[in-house]
């Protein structure tokens, strides 16, 4: 297991409840794990805990078998590539520069950008199909293009794990499909993938393993058709849903409207 959290408990300063309450999770090569759950269920806190960005009240995170306390940020960045949910856009930056930032954990403070770094950037740009934008300023990109550039930056880190925090928030259908297809493809090539998302139906189609969080705890985990059951989803998201399998067998979730068959009278 390349990235593993055991019994993670996080309580933010000034809060009386645990944001994360005893969650264990593991990420393995060539497998895409999706973390889903309602707002405030602890998804982003789980990611931050796994990346060492928030102090743990209890539990431990292991990366490549070693506890995260022993990792410098640079060493960690060489193993785990992250596409954060939000970041500031530096206006003057070109796509090429933005992706080169992914090499910084390998460059040191003053080390020159070498051939290996150039090749890694080229390769990452090509794999994410953004090489044609390399001289463009990043703020001229569309939301979907920018997201692919950020995935390319994470790939330039040459990581073993790829972590994405709501990569398709605010993207239209085409761009969200493009991002998920890209991630699926990269995982198929051997990366360990971890994605936090609100898109249950995309998670059901693309992920191998679903972790359903509720109030900081794992409510259910397993293959998509084991987790996405109507009763469970209805219970966790506090809204009635129907679940129907799509042609590929993945469960697809349809939120119900009052008056529809299956809609419980007492809501």
């Amino acid at each position: 297991m390349i990235l593993e959290g055991r019994h993670l408990r996080v309580r933010y300063a000034g809060s009386r409840e645990n944001a994360l309450d005893g969650v264990s999770i593991g990420v393995e090569p060539a497998r895409l794990t999706a973390v889903v759950g309602p707002n405030g269920s602890g998804k982003t806190t789980l990611l931050r805990a796994l990346l060492g960005l928030v102090p743990l009240t209890e539990g431990e995170v292991f990366i490549d078998g070693r506890t995260i306390a022993h990792w410098s940020r640079a060493a960690l960045a060489r193993v785990v590539g992250v596409v954060p949910q939000r970041e500031e856009v530096v206006e003057e930056m070109t796509v090429d520069h933005a992706v080169l930032l992914g090499r910084y954990s390998r460059l040191g403070a003053l080390g020159p950008v070498g051939v290996a770094d150039r090749l890694a950037v080229d390769d990452a740009l090509a794999r994410c199909d953004v090489a044609q934008f390399r001289t463009r300023a990043v703020q001229t990109l569309s939301g979907g293009e920018w997201q692919r550039v950020r995935v390319a930056r994470a790939l330039a880190q040459e990581p073993q794990v790829l972590v994405l925090d709501e990569p398709t928030a605010a993207l239209d259908i085409r761009h969200e499909m493009e991002v998920f297809e890209l991630v699926r493809h990269l995982v198929h090539q051997g990366l360990a993938g971890l994605v936090v998302t609100h898109h249950l139906n995309l998670a059901a189609r693309f992920a191998d393993h679903i972790v359903l969080l509720d109030h900081g705890r794992v409510k259910a985990e397993g293959a998509p058709d084991a987790v996405f059951r109507a009763d469970l989803v209805t219970d966790v998201f506090e809204w009635p849903v129907a679940v129907h399998p799509w042609k590929d067998g993945s469960p697809q979730i349809i939120p119900l409207r009052p008056g529809e068959p299956d809609f419980p009278v007492a809501l």
């Binding site: 931050r48 990346l51 960005l53 410098s72 940020r73 640079a74 960690l76 960045a77 060489r78 785990v80 992250v82 954060p84 939000r86 970041e87 500031e88 530096v90 930032l101 992914g102 910084y104 954990s105 460059l107 403070a109 003053l110 930056r153 880190q157």
Partner: peptide
């Protein structure tokens, strides 16, 4: 400051993005 130049490139993205790219915030 010159020695922190690359960390500053990363910090321009925000604190957590900088950290996950290898900056010691």
């Amino acid at each position: 400051l010159l020695y922190q130049a690359r960390a500053l490139d990363l910090l321009a993205l925000g604190e957590e993005p900088a950290q996950v790219l290898g900056a010691e915030l």
